[in-house]
Write a protein that binds this DNA or RNA. Structure first.
Lengths: 229, 229
DNA sequence: AAGTGGTCTAGACCACCTT
DNA sequence: AGGTGGTCTAGACCACTTA
């Protein structure tokens, strides 16, 4: 033990540069709820914790701000973004508008391979053990992403990916309500059918209803958690 | 002549911190087309130019990446984002979906003050001297933003603001085609009328058509500029 | 008025590209 | 192998907060 290691630098995930690893670590901690919304993120503390100087930590925080996970006030420092009911309504409205548009478009574009991929994700979701909210949220995003990829609109997909991270953070915190998973599976099945027969109108309507259901489920889960405290 | 100033630090715009000022300056230069898409941004050069050390410049570049104006590759440096026809189609599709959704929603929500604000922006656009594309693009964004504010969806407005900056950069480069301004004014007038009588369906249809026209105008302006070289 | 913590500087380090 | 340029460290500086 002559060699002294930085405290727990080996706890940092992979990535070629230091600020990337810090970024990934913080991101994972926030998305998993290990760092709570509203929590103050002090550069010095984090740097000590990871055994680094402060600049790479600072960079990681800037990146996270770009993704909307962190709020950075000049000369004041960083906090994890707070998400209230209004915020949830706003981002689900964005999903409804944008994802709905892409879903309608995809109805004419998805080939047999795409439909097969959707059915495989459904099968995986049915097997999801113990209804782990993080896993379900991830599979749900994979499902919708598969639909969206058929449109070739990479910019839109990038925006929706950012939002899905925020939603994943909320699901990790509040979970799904009882019976929600069954509803999701049923609605996804109906959506696959509409997409397969190229019915854009039906697919769009099913999607809109699906998103409004997801939004209401989350708002209620949040309200229940609120009432419990 | 005795006092040596950092080269042109006084050319940096206002802002409380140094990285903010660098950020604003680079952003303005990119949006105005003074720095071309695809151009390499070297930290050292910029730092020398502004008479600063490199770290604040680096931070500014990170911020710009978050806004989508710059692409940052680890260990490779920064370049101004390239925008091709496919990219333009993608971001206009996003505008159509998202802004269209908000416009439909706003039909029931805009009050007399809001309608008045829209008419004032129209008057200003009619007075716009020499059809300066940057000014017109700014007023156009102000118009649509006024509609969107009525919905209270700040997240969506933030996304659209980011995109409008990218579109402004393209307009600064390629301009509007002849006669486009007249069409825009006419379509805006019709949209105001629909919003005033609370006709969400008509407002939405007018908006969709408006955006598709804007997209085609830009694609043609780009194609003409391409053919000219 | 002191303390905390974010910001900026200077320089060393190191990854990647070129020869 | 050398050069260019991005990344990381250490410490000084300075804005904002608390008493």
């Amino acid at each position: 033990m002559s060699i002294v290691r930085p405290s727990d630098a080996d706890a940092l995930p992979f990535g070629s540069t230091v600020y990337q690893r810090v970024h990934e670590r913080l991101r994972a901690d926030i998305l998993a709820g290990r760092i709570a919304p509203g929590a103050r993120l002090k550069i010095q503390d984090l740097a000590n914790q990871y055994g680094l100087s402060h600049m790479p930590v600072r960079e990681a925080l800037q990146q996270l701000q770009g993704e909307g996970l962190v709020v950075l006030a000049p000369n004041r420092g960083a906090t994890v973004r707070r998400m209230n009911a209004q915020f949830v309504r706003n981002i689900f409205a964005i999903r409804e508008a944008l994802e709905g548009y892409l879903t309608r478009q995809a109805a004419g574009l998805l080939d047999a391979a795409g439909i097969g991929a959707l059915r495989r994700i459904q099968a995986e979701m049915r097997r999801a053990p113990g209804r782990d909210p993080a896993l379900i949220a991830r599979l749900n995003r994979a499902f919708h992403r598969t639909v969206e990829v058929a449109t070739g609109n990479d910019e839109a997909i990038r925006l929706l990916d950012l939002h899905s991270d925020l939603i994943a953070a909320l699901r990790a915190r509040f979970g799904y309500r009882r019976g929600r998973l069954q509803v999701v599976l049923r609605e996804h099945d109906a959506l696959i059918d509409a997409l397969e027969r190229g019915d854009a109108e039906a697919a769009g309507a099913l999607h809109d209803q699906h998103i409004r259901g997801a939004r209401d489920d989350m708002l209620q889960a949040m309200a229940e958690a609120d009432a419990a405290t």
